[in-house]
Design a protein around this nucleic acid. Sequence first.
DNA 1: GGGGCACAAAGCGTATACAATGATCGGCAT
DNA 2: ATGCCGATCATTGTATACGCTTTGTGCCCC
Lengths: 246, 246
Amino acid sequence: MNQRQFVAGGKSGDGGGRPGKNGDGPKRHEAIYQSISDAIIEHRLKPGARLREDALAEVFGVSRTGIRKILQRLALEQLVTLTPRRGASVTRPTADEAKDVFDARLMVECGLMPEIARRITADDLAALRDMARRERQALKAGEQSTAIRLSADFHTRLASISGNATLADFVERLCSRSSLILAVYGNAGHLGCESHDHDDLIGYLEAGNGERAEAFMGRHLKAIEASLSIHVEEDEAPDLFEIFSG
Amino acid sequence: MNQRQFVAGGKSGDGGGRPGKNGDGPKRHEAIYQSISDAIIEHRLKPGARLREDALAEVFGVSRTGIRKILQRLALEQLVTLTPRRGASVTRPTADEAKDVFDARLMVECGLMPEIARRITADDLAALRDMARRERQALKAGEQSTAIRLSADFHTRLASISGNATLADFVERLCSRSSLILAVYGNAGHLGCESHDHDDLIGYLEAGNGERAEAFMGRHLKAIEASLSIHVEEDEAPDLFEIFSG
DNA sequence: GGGGCACAAAGCGTATACAATGATCGGCAT
DNA sequence: ATGCCGATCATTGTATACGCTTTGTGCCCC
C-alpha cells in the first residue's frame, strides 16, 4: 500500500521510436513487464518457449539491460526459467509444482474467504460481477486467452479485498503460475474455472456467508485441479535407467 | 578483502589490471546476496539504512551491474526498498505491513502444521532440535543477531518439511520480513520467539500431534506479535494534509 | 537580513562494448 | 563410413561510459 508511485511529472513524452534515454524508464519497463507477463498468462507464449534477450530488446525498443531486469523479475515469480548460460524460457511447471501451487491456493484462498466476506463492499461486488460477466463472454466467444486472464484476475481481485497486501500478492503469483499449469496440463475445452462458479461465489459473499464461500472455494479449486490431466511425464530428467534397464 | 578473482582464461589481451571478467559469476553473486540478506536479517543493517550501489560494488569487488541485480532481487523480497531516483535502502516496514505479515504467517504456518507432523522424520527432528539448541545458546550468550537469524531459520526449516516448496518459500520470505519488523517494533530484551517455545513445538511434532502443534504455533506467533510495540507512526508518508488542514 | 534561484556535485538509469561459455558443424583419423 | 575433435558461431554475463534527475550550497535580489 506504500507503493509510492512517484509519478515523476515533467515531460514524459514517450516519444515513439526514439528510445527515451531516461525518465520514462519505470513506466516503460512496467508496461513491457505486463506485456510479457500477459502473453505468458494468456498462453500466447507457451511453456518451453525461448525468450532471447536481444530479440525482446528489439521488439520493445529498449536495450538488453532493461530486458534482463524484467526477465529476472519474471524468473523470481517463476513464470520464466533462467538457465545459466542458455537464456530464458517460459517455465514448464512440473507435476509436483502444480500440486504445490494448488495446495497453496487451497490453503490461502480458502483461508481468506471469511475476512473477504466481512470486508466486501458493494463496489467490490459490482467489479467482481463485471469481471465474471466478461469472463463468461470471452468463454462464449471462444477467446480462451482472455478468459484465462480474466479468471486469474478474478481470483487476484478477490484476494485483494481481504486487505492483506502480502497474501494478495502471493495469490496473484499463484494464479499466474496456475495459468501456466493449465497450459501444460489442462484439457482443451474444459478450461479452468467453470463460468457459473464465480457467480455462485459472488452470491455467497454478497450474503456475507464466509463459511459457505470458503467451502465453495475449496470445491472450486479442487474441481480445477481434478480437471487437469497430470500425467507425471518426467521430461525434466527422464529415468533412463528405469526405462532401459527392464 | 576479497578482490582476488581467479580468472581462468589465459588470454587477457587488454589491461591486466582488470578484475575478473566472468566465470565465477553465479556463485559470487549468490554469496553477495547472502551476505547482504544476512546482514539485514541480523540487524547489522538497520531499517532505513541507505545502500549505495557503488559503495557496495567497491566493497564486494564487483561492478554496479551485479549489485543492481542483487538489489532488485532483495527489493522483490521486500527486504530493501528501491526509490526510483534515490537508490536503495533497507525497508522500514509499516505497521500495516507488520500486521499483514503476521496474519499471513498465522494462516500459512499454522495451516502447514498437520502436514508437517505427518511427514516429519527423525532426521528433521534432530536438525530442529539442534537449531533450537543453538538459538538458546546464542540468546544466552547475548548474540542477538545470531539468535534472530536462527529463529527465522527454524521457522523456515519447519515449513520446508511440509514438502510444499512454494509455501516453504513464502514462509521463508515472511520470516525474513519478520526479522525486519522485529528490528523496528521489537523491544530490546524481549526478542522474538521465546526459546522454550520452539522446544515445546518439537515435542508436539515428535508425538505426531499436528493439531496441538497447530494451536501452539498459533499462540506462539500471536505472542510474538503481541510483544511488538506497534505504535502507528506514519513516518513513511505523513498525512500532511490531514495533519495541517484541520 | 531572509528567501528564492542557479549552479555544481553526486548518484542512479540506460545503453553499448567486450569476454567467456556452450552448442553446432565440418574435418580428420581410424 | 563412422566417431571424435577442433573451430566457429550464437548468446549470455559483466563492466564501463554517458545522460538525467535530484539535492545541497552559495549568491543575488528584495
